[in-house]
């Protein structure tokens, strides 16, 4: 007797409302409008009102919000690089260079944050792009290797040459003008970058970048100078990565070697992989899961880094989809089991 168990397979169907909404902007009911808008508007609204309740949630958690935005920006920058096919293991490079440029401008010339933060962001992005320029001609893991190496080396460089305050760093920098600036500047920057990147990657410009990721030779034989496009992409990523460095410098009123710390490399990376690579919303979501979690686990000290590493390995090997893709799928599709005949 050969009695085989009945086999089932999971079948996924798009919700009717999704099929109708996609690409066709003829929405017929409030329900459909809500269906489309809710996942976009709700998180944005939450983010915008969160600082208003500072008296209820307490300043500590408002501070966590600022750090979360900084990490989210770094992971957005990581995801942007990943969508051109460049793997960065050293987001701390962008953060640190942005921080040091801002800090030293403020320290040397006593310029206010309104000038040093934009200058630091721009200057930091330029320096990072120049540093990474030679590697862009190569394919493969070279970019990862060099981004991993550079922050460590720059840290050593500052330590040995004792420039820019050496191991002590530069302290007593100008504080930010008000609490509202501290809270709303990172939030707005994050939203602008998030929706900007999401838009840009689907524009024709973004298609070229995605093409470089999939097959750089075919892009090249399409009469497109891929090195120039890669340079632009790295500059944009460096811009978005340097801003949190520049901002946090004035936020902490201090810049020092911790700006190149491993945390700024591995946290954004973990956030991006956990959230889901390639969506920009995923990495942001990942940062909003990881950073508050990591505040809760503050008591564990360096074990947190081990914890990130474990999450990274598990996500990369076992759950490459990421949280965001999972939620999106659940939102847009029915699942049911069907008998396999």
């Amino acid at each position: 007797m050969n009695k085989e168990p009945i086999k089932f397979r999971k079948e996924r169907l798009d919700r009717g409302i999704k099929a109708r909404c996609e690409d066709i902007f003829a929405l017929s009911s409030y329900r459909e409008i809500l269906y489309l808008l809710l996942p976009r508007v709700l998180p944005v609204a939450l983010l915008l009102v969160f600082p208003l309740f500072k008296d209820i949630v307490g300043l500590y958690w408002e501070k966590v919000l600022v750090i979360t935005c900084a990490i989210a920006l770094l992971s957005l920058s990581w995801d942007w690089l990943a969508s051109v096919g460049l793997i960065s293991l050293g987001q701390a490079l962008f953060f640190g260079v942005g921080a040091y440029v801002t800090g030293s401008l403020n320290y040397a010339f006593k310029w206010p944050p309104l000038i040093t933060i934009p200058l630091g962001t721009l200057g930091g992005a330029l320096i990072c792009t120049l540093l990474l320029l030679p590697v862009l001609r190569l394919r493969g893991v070279y970019f990862a290797i060099v981004t991993l190496t550079l922050p460590l080396l720059l840290m050593r460089f500052i330590e040995t040459t004792k420039i820019l305050g050496g191991t002590e760093g530069l302290s007593a920098l100008t504080p930010l003008p008000s609490l509202w600036v501290e809270l709303y500047v990172p939030v707005f920057t994050l939203l602008i970058c998030l929706f900007g990147f999401r838009r840009l990657i689907n524009e024709d410009y973004g298609l070229v970048l995605q093409g470089i990721r999939d097959n750089d030779r075919a892009v090249m034989s399409g009469a497109i100078n891929i090195y120039w496009f890669k340079t632009q992409a790295v500059f944009l990523a460096a811009l978005v990565g340097s801003f949190p460095g520049a901002f946090m410098t004035h936020y902490y009123q201090f810049v020092g070697m911790p700006a190149f710390a491993l945390d700024y490399s591995i946290l954004p990376l973990t956030a991006a992989v956990l959230g889901g690579v390639g969506t920009f919303a995923g990495p942001t979501l990942g940062a909003f899961i990881l950073v508050p979690l990591s505040e809760v686990l503050r008591a564990f000290g360096t074990l947190r880094v081990v914890f990130y590493s474990a999450i990274l390995i598990i996500c990369v090997v076992g759950l490459p989809e990421g949280v965001f893709h999972y939620i999106r799928r659940k939102y847009h599709q029915f699942e049911r089991m069907v008998e396999v005949g």
């Binding site: 793997i87 293991l89 990862a144 074990l303 590493s309 474990a310 990274l312 990369v316 090997v317």
Partner: peptide
């Protein structure tokens, strides 16, 4: 994750950092 450069790099990097920071802890 063989053949996916992104995942190979991240996985080994995370493993290395995990080992080192575990000893630190």
């Amino acid at each position: 994750v063989r053949g996916i450069a992104l995942s190979e790099v991240i996985a080994t990097f995370a493993l290395g950092v995990g080992i080192l920071e575990l000893f630190r802890y």
